[in-house]
């Protein structure tokens, strides 16, 4: 393990992380999937696959397709449900030093509220990421993330039921993401994470059919990074709670761009598929950068962009 001489601690709204490198929900399973490949204890936090009240089978295949410098997915939030998660998946996560953040999604405001209450008294869950941005489920998900009042209602409901830090994951598929960000801040969110995937599609020109069974899917990977970075910068200007940057982060350089733009931490998503050691490589790269530039603390970097 690399000796960390620089101060990497960062506050993401009620949770102080030992470093800013988190995993993005939906790209890291329930953590144990990566136990063979990396030292999970080095991660700033682990955000698990989006959970619903009941187990969900997800969408029919094909669910993924590669596009230029990116991929489309329409997994449809396949998950084991909150009860099985707590019983079967959480015990492993509890053995780790890295905090666990649980991503939740519902079909109604009541679902979100119920999920939050079930999680609230579990000590080893450090925070909740409220997913109001999945583009691949028919009911709920993104429906709450594209409209400021609907977003407010979900987050307000969750806020009333939990004392845990509440992070809200935002969709880029809106006219003005800062409006949604302000709305969830008003509703009591402790932080916002952005962006979720951009809705896209791909067509097989021989069969003239969509490649994904769901027709549309969410675009992720390096292709979306400039868009995500712009949105993180815009949101960071407009709200007073921490912003977590997500979107096509493949390298330490990508992560540093997000931090400089105003993100207090970052989440690594699609890169986990390409290189399962991405999170650790990114963390080591950030440390090297700080050391080489004689920057004592990561906090000196957050939002330091000069225009």
């Amino acid at each position: 393990m690399k000796k960390e001489k620089v101060d990497l601690k960062t506050d993401i709204g009620g949770i102080e992380l030992k470093n800013p490198v988190m995993t993005a929900s939906g790209t890291f399973g329930y953590g144990s999937e990566y136990d063979d490949t990396i030292d999970l204890n080095r991660l700033g936090a682990i955000v698990v696959k989006g959970l619903s009240l009941e187990a969900s089978p997800g969408n029919p295949p094909p669910r993924v397709v590669e596009t230029a410098s990116g991929m489309l997915n329409a997994i449809g939030l396949e998950n084991v449900g909150i009860k099985r998660f707590i019983k079967e998946k959480l015990p492993f996560l509890q053995t780790l030093q890295s905090p666990t953040i649980v991503n939740i999604y519902g079909k109604s405001v009541e679902d979100y509220i119920e999920l939050a209450s079930q999680i609230d008294d579990i000590e080893d869950i450090s925070g909740i990421e409220v997913n109001i941005s999945c583009p691949n489920v028919k009911a709920g998900g993104v429906a709450f993330g594209v409209e400021p009042i609907a977003a407010y209602n979900v987050v307000n409901g969750v806020r009333e039921k939990t004392s845990k830090p509440v992070m809200v994951k935002l969709t880029p598929n809106v006219t003005d993401i800062t409006e949604i960000a302000k709305s969830v801040e008003d509703a009591g969110a402790d932080s916002v994470s952005l962006v979720n995937t951009l809705t896209g599609m791909a067509i097989d020109i021989d069969t003239r059919k969509p490649i994904l069974a769901n027709i549309t899917g969410g675009l992720s990977g390096p292709a979306i990074k400039p868009v995500a970075l712009r949105m993180v910068w815009q949101v960071a200007q407009k709200i007073n709670i921490p912003v977590i940057g997500i979107g096509g982060i493949m390298t330490a350089e990508d992560a540093l761009e997000f931090l400089i733009a105003g993100a207090s931490a970052i989440q690594v998503g699609t890169a986990n598929f390409v290189n399962p050691k991405s999170t650790i490589d990114i963390l080591d790269g950030i440390i090297n950068y700080l050391e080489e530039k004689n920057i004592p603390s990561i906090r000196d970097l957050i939002g330091c962009m000069e225009v």
């Binding site: 939906g26 790209t27 890291f28 399973g29 999937e33 990566y34 490949t37 696959k49 997800g58 969408n59 029919p60 295949p61 669910r63 993924v64 997915n73 997994i75 396949e78 986990n272 598929f273 399962p276």
Partner: peptide
Amino acid sequence: MGACLGCA
């Protein structure tokens, strides 16, 4: 490796 759940 079981993380993306794309290969259903």
